[in-house]
Amino acid sequence: MFEAVLSNGSTLKKIFEGIKDLCTDVNFDVSSEGIKLQAMDSSHVSLVSLELHTDVFEQFRCDRDSMTLGLNMKSVTQIFKICGNDDSVTMRAEDEGETLEFTFEKGEDRVSTFELKLMDIDSEHLGIPDTEYQCNVKLPCSEYQRICRDMAGFGDNMTIDCQKGGVTFSVDGEVGKGKIFLKHQPNVEEKHKVIVTVKEGVELDFALRYLNNFAKAAPLSDHVQLGLNSDTPLSVRFDIEDKATLGSLKFFLAPKIKE
């Protein structure tokens, strides 16, 4: 049997909101260590990787070595509309069951339950090695969200140029070109901090459609971390409630290459 209780149900709601437009069906891989999910978008350009450690849950129980729960994202997000922002969520599935039961509770006054039919999903797992990035940028989620949204008005691609001292986001579109520079700002108020760590400068192009999609996970944490390498996909990482110990929602995006 699998049973997990999360007192802050909105965390799960935010996770599903963050990935629903990239993947239609996903597998929840449950084990005694927590919940993992890996899914690619249909064009194999981006990948979602979720890790929820048991620390994020008030109660966590998985009797088997592993269980795979296939979820349709549209149905899950529909179900989470039932979940109020202050509700706790309990997920429950029998070992050979065909459903995942969600219970949303606010105190004892209001209890909603929904049994979701599970799906059998063929998923391709990619091996993603632990990568040391040449450049790491930590910036406020609100800033990331704003940059991606504003830049999408001018073009389809955004160049991220990370150098010692700061990071430049630029777009070159039909109406003209623009750029936004964020200075390495370690000594300001936490919520405004921008940390740019550079071993070697990197400049890469990415599709704004995907970067904007990742921004939908912004409510999950205060800061987002970008990892850039000249020869591997971009990593966009949101730590759950800004605590890596609880887990993270990561997105990987293949860069564009100039002809």
Binding site: S43, H125, L126, G127, I128, P233, A254, K256
Partner: peptide
């Protein structure tokens, strides 16, 4: 126009 790379270029299936 730059060409969109795909993740299969970088990672292998496991």
């Amino acid at each position: 126009t730059p060409i969109q790379n795909n993740l299969d270029e970088f990672y292998t299936l496991v």
